[in-house]
Design a protein around this nucleic acid. Structure first.
Lengths: 211, 211
DNA sequence: CGCGTAGTTGAACTCCATCAATGTCAGTGG
DNA sequence: CCACTGACATTGATGGAGTTCAACTACGCG
């Protein structure tokens, strides 16, 4: 589901944003379409009652801010330092029109942006903190910067909590459970080792608590 | 967010499906795009572990099955008897291409289909059964068949439960709470009266339990 | 009228949120 | 080099909301 439409952006200037910077705000008119080249971005909304939710994490290659709504549905904040390119809505519309007449491949880009949001919805529909944690890890490990067998996990537990609709404490305990089951290991706070990927995927599917 | 693109379907034949019939299945190649003309349709997926989730309810005017993924992401089942029209992917792509070159209005149709799924994600991110129930009611009452001040609610509590990721028992108790607070009334199992819409919307926003 | 489905109610239990305290790490400045 | 600081992670104890299981009721339909 990771569609690559890089060619559409050829000739664009490579832009950068440093960690914690906001690329665009929820509610702003969606004037630009972004394509992430490196780093991680989170899609954030704040509910009326002030609660923060992270709708999705975006990685290199992902398109963000597609104009299927008049205004952006979430704020895009850089989790790490990022590089990206951007395109005006007009250009993007034109490229999409061409694509539709040809093979419709750019429609997949829309699907690709919606997909993580969609998958989060499915995730939250299933109870069980460990289950959610496992599903989350499965969904991102293939897109994480990797050094040998270790992954770099530059996402705070607070962010994971806001993504999974849990508290940071529960996130921590869920990780602990997965460590105790020898499914994963964490040599440092932001490093991750997957010992048993099959077991991780099983944990992500089973409705029961990983006991 | 309820975009009307009826004109695109002019000349199409009006089709019907009776309650509980499936219009298309999850995983099928998305060959047709549907526009609902009357009745209610539910979008259903079954998880690997057999759990049923309802991703969205669709009402008259909604477009279903847009080809932003190669295959349908959910099954579409008629909740009530429904009427609809449908279009091939080729036709739809062509219409979208034209729209993109003009004003991009058909992109809003995509947003409109994704919107209920998106809103469900937000909903599940907030705890509180009564809160979810109230938010659900707020989101559908404007699209429900209405007789005077009473609404026809042809959706079973089991379906509501699968939509809100709760058990039928909790759905029942949440409705009871709202009745006890004199916010709603239910003269019959499938009839709904909104006594205090403001209070309902407040209950949908407040994170706290409606005590 | 009898049957099946859907909704309702109660009691016990489970899991997660909450609150509070402690621990760890990176960065800063003395 | 080490103490200091603040953000983040960890751990424990407690309570409450929702699940679960079971029994019961209401309703629609043959």
């Amino acid at each position: 589901m990771y569609v690559n439409c890089q060619d559409e952006f050829l000739g664009e200037v490579l832009l950068t944003a440093s960690a914690k910077q906001t690329m665009f705000w929820e509610g702003q008119d969606s004037a630009y379409i972004f394509q992430l080249r490196s780093g991680i971005v989170r899609g954030v909304t704040i509910s009326e009652d002030g609660e923060r939710q992270i709708l999705a994490f975006f990685f290199a290659g992902d398109h963000i801010g597609l104009p299927i709504t008049q205004s952006y549905r979430f704020s895009a904040e850089a989790v790490t330092d990022v590089t990206y390119v951007r395109q005006t809505r007009g250009h993007w519309n034109y490229a999409l029109a061409e694509s539709c007449l040809k093979d419709g491949s750019m429609l997949r880009c829309i699907g690709a942006e919606q997909d993580p949001i969609y998958r989060r919805g499915m995730l939250l529909g299933r109870q069980g903190a460990v289950t959610r944690m496992a599903a989350f890890l499965c969904s991102i490990i293939d897109r994480l910067p990797q050094d040998g067998v270790q992954f770099d996990l530059p996402i705070s537990q607070q962010d994971i909590a806001d993504y999974l609709a849990l508290t940071p404490e529960t996130v921590c305990r869920s990780l602990k459970r997965l460590k105790q089951s020898d499914i994963i290991a964490m040599p440092a706070h932001n490093r991750l080792v997957i010992h048993d990927r099959d077991a991780l995927e099983r944990a992500a599917q089973s409705r029961a608590t990983c006991s």
